[in-house]
Amino acid sequence: MAKSNVFDLLGPIMVGPSSSHTAGAVRLGGMARKILGEEPVEGTIFLHGSFAKTGKGHGTDLALLAGLLGMLPDDERIPDASKLAQEQGLSVKYEVIDLGDVHPNTVKFDLKGKTGVHLQVIGSSIGGGTIVIGKINEYEVDIRGDYPTLVVLHQDHPGVVAQVTLLLATAQINIASMRVAREKKGAQALMILETDQTIDKAVLELMRKLPKIEQAMAIEPL
């Protein structure tokens, strides 16, 4: 598995009772909100495996919801997430799902944002509050929320990767990791880049204007 640091092991500072089922769940909700890129107003939370079986006792349902509302794992309002969601106009329902051979603590979000953005996100809480987002819509990804992350939806065409990395280089943004995947040759493709520096709005706007780029989003670390 990926490299960890000392504060992944001692930390987070959090409200109990479970780092994987409470703190990790808050972070998964928060990450889904960041990927959506706007305030969610409607959604379904699908619980898999241990999240489905023991989630209630750990407050996993409330924790995921608290994350969608933008709370952090040490927020002492987490137990009140249901009430706060109602007040803030976020309506969610919960369902149990079998996602197959994934981590036992896995959740799928189906979210609608306030301007109508519709997105599906699958993520797992892999222990100690560490999370990994494994899928956005139909694309396999590996986003951990440790670095600023750039997600670019584009057409599979020669030179697209080069123009994206050139733009980042010009903006003095260093790439820590990079992954490109496509559905099939010449079709839609997805680029995921983790960077050392924050990707600001101006860079993102320039990125969106590049040819063959369909969508670009910058996800802040959690």
Binding site: L9, L10, G11, P12, I13, M14, V15, G16, P17, S18, S19, S20, T22, A23, G59, D74, E76, I78, P79, G127, G128, G129
Partner: peptide
């Protein structure tokens, strides 16, 4: 304190 939803440091986990 953890079971009572109080504030702790996961070390390595909350449990």
């Amino acid at each position: 304190i953890n079971a009572c939803m109080g504030k702790i440091v996961a070390a390595p986990t909350a449990g």
